[in-house]
Every structure is written in structure tokens, then in C-alpha cells.
């Protein structure tokens, strides 16, 4: 029938419009995001030449090194450990903050939220650097302690400082999703709990926390992932004393002489796979809750 062919023509027109909308952005992402990831994957199976040049000889040696040499294995373990700690601290500090914000009247709430958002928009490097001024041996804390006649402390270039910097940098990413979850939470449920004789703590533990778990999970993912690849904080505040994955990758690509791109690529690939595992786990847990 003539009309139904007209309908098909409409569909084709729609199709062309869709392609015109998708093409520029998707092509860019395919060429300058996905394809490079593929290149890294290929590099990770190549051999590093004596002068840091690439030799097109396929090998598994990079992966073997990664999983057998203790300095590399340690870097992974250390990264996972400090990312886990960062996530935990961000959660412990961020949840009560989000709760506080949710309970404010709308206007105050907006201001408090924007105040949490601002650090997200400001230069990470600069904010981490600010801690150097505070923690340095001749920095704010130690000069203050000195002025009061107290012994000075060795604060900068410690793992504690790294952890502090990471929690500081990632806290907003924990607060925002938890806030969103708490905003949707029906607080009359807490009253219902109290009505049924639940203690406040009990009501929090058995009603509020489980119901805001999606927000907590989203926050955990948002904090954990960037922390795994970081190298700036451990360099600026940790004094680059111990290696995390990020430091190793950066060194293998930019600093070491000769550079070792294949090994760096293998490290990056393994990191990505580990993280994608976490992300899949996260999506699985959220979709299961939807069901």
C-alpha cells in the first residue's frame, strides 16, 4: 500500500537523523577513546627494545613480570588497600554529612550542596598542594606547634598524608550520591520504626542504611575507581616513598630511562580489567535491587 511505504520512508528519514546525531560524537569516542584502549592492549603483548623502542615480537613476559615480581604485585596490593581505606573513610565521613544536608530547609540545603560541589570543580592538583603548606616540616601545623613550644611532627611524605589527601579529594563524590539517595528516602519510615519501638540506632541500621544502599554503592564506585589510578597525591603528599599502580605506570611511560611502554600497558590493562570487574559487580547489585 502506498501509505505504508510512506511510513517506511518516514522511518528511514528518522534513521538518517539519528545517524547524523550520533556520528560525530561516537566517531570521536571510537577513534580517540576505544581505539587507543585497544592499542594499549596490543602494546601489552609486545616486547620492549633495549632503548625503549617497540619490538613487534609477541610475548606474555609483561604479564608474567606483573604477577611474579614482588614490587609490581605489591603496588597492586597497596593500591587496592589504600583505595579501600579511602572509600571507607569517605563513607564514614560522608554519610553523616549527607544526612545533615538532607535535614536542612531547602534554601540552606542548596547552599550546602553547592559548597560540596565546588571542590569537584576546582583544580585537584591545587587542592592537594594546599595540604603541603599545612603539613610540611616548616608548614602551618609545625610552626604553630613550635610557637606553642611543642615538639614538631613529621607529617608530610607519609602514607597517612596520602590517605588524608585522597579522602579530602574524593569526599564530594561520596556525599553527592548518598545525598541523592537520602533525598528519596521517606523519613516517616523512621518514625514508623520508632513507633514500633525500634531504637534510633536500630532504625538507622535496619531501615535507613539498607534503603540508601544504592547511593552508598554509587559513592563507593565513584571514590574507589579514580583512587586506584592516582599518582599525584602519593607523589605530592606521600613523597613518592612507596609505589602505587599510578606511579608505576606514569614512570614506565614518561620517566624511566629507557621507558617501558609494553609493561606500562600491561599494568594499565590489568588495572582496567580489575576495575571493570568492580563496575560489573556494582551494576549487577543495582539491577538486582530493581527486580
Amino acid at each position: 500500500m502506498a501509505l505504508s511505504s510512506f511510513e517506511r520512508e518516514q522511518q528511514r528519514r528518522e534513521q538518517r537523523r539519528l545517524i547524523a546525531l550520533l556520528a560525530p560524537g561516537m566517531l570521536w569516542l571510537l577513534v580517540f577513546f576505544l581505539l587507543p584502549l585497544l592499542v594499549i592492549l596490543v602494546y601489552s603483548f609486545l616486547t620492549n627494545g633495549p632503548r625503549g623502542n617497540l619490538l613487534w615480537q609477541p610475548t606474555l613476559q609483561n604479564y608474567v613480570d606483573l604477577f611474579t615480581q614482588s614490587s609490581y604485585v605489591n603496588a597492586y596490593v597497596r593500591s587496592l588497600w589504600i583505595s579501600g581505606l579511602t572509600t571507607l573513610f569517605a563513607l564514614l565521613l560522608g554519610y553523616p554529612l549527607a544526612l545533615f544536608i538532607v535535614k536542612q530547609p531547602p534554601r540552606v540545603r542548596l547552599v550546602l550542596l553547592i559548597l560540596v560541589l565546588i571542590p569537584f570543580w576546582t583544580n585537584f592538583l591545587v587542592r592537594i598542594y594546599a595540604w603541603q603548606i599545612i603539613l610540611a616540616n616548616n608548614g602551618l601545623i609545625n610552626t604553630t606547634l613550635g610557637a606553642m613550644g611543642l615538639p614538631t611532627l613529621f607529617l608530610l611524605n607519609t602514607e597517612g598524608a596520602t590517605l588524608l589527601g585522597l579522602v579530602y579529594g574524593e569526599l564530594p563524590f561520596m556525599v553527592l550520591p548518598i545525598y541523592a539517595a537520602l533525598d528519596r528516602f521517606d523519613f516517616t519510615l523512621m518514625e514508623a520504626g520508632a513507633d514500633l519501638g525500634a531504637s534510633k540506632w536500630h532504625a538507622f541500621w535496619h531501615i535507613m542504611l539498607p534503603m540508601t544502599m544504592p547511593g552508598v554503592a554509587a559513592g563507593a564506585v565513584l571514590v574507589f575507581i579514580p583512587t586506584i589510578g592516582q599518582f599525584v597525591v602519593s607523589e605530592l603528599l606521600g613523597g613518592a616513598k612507596v609505589d602505587y599502580i599510578g606511579n608505576l605506570i606514569q614512570r614506565l611511560f614518561l620517566r624511566s630511562n629507557p621507558p617501558n611502554w609494553p609493561l606500562g600497558s600491561a599494568m594499565s590493562t590489568v588495572m582496567m580489567i580489575v576495575l571493570l570487574g568492580f563496575i560489573l559487580l556494582y551494576f549487577r547489585s543495582t539491577t538486582e535491587e530493581d527486580r
Binding site: 500500500m1 501509505l3 505504508s4 510512506f6 511510513e7 518516514q10
Partner: peptide, 17 residues
């Protein structure tokens, strides 16, 4: 929406498409 079949007229003028 465009009809999948049939005819539509407005004041005698075909309008379906």
C-alpha cells in the same frame, strides 16, 4: 502520526502524508 493505511481528507484534500 502517519497512517499505516487508508485515506484521510481535510475538506476533500488528501492529507495522510
Amino acid at each position: 502520526e502517519y497512517p499505516s493505511g487508508g485515506e484521510l481528507m481535510i475538506h476533500g484534500r488528501p492529507m495522510a502524508t
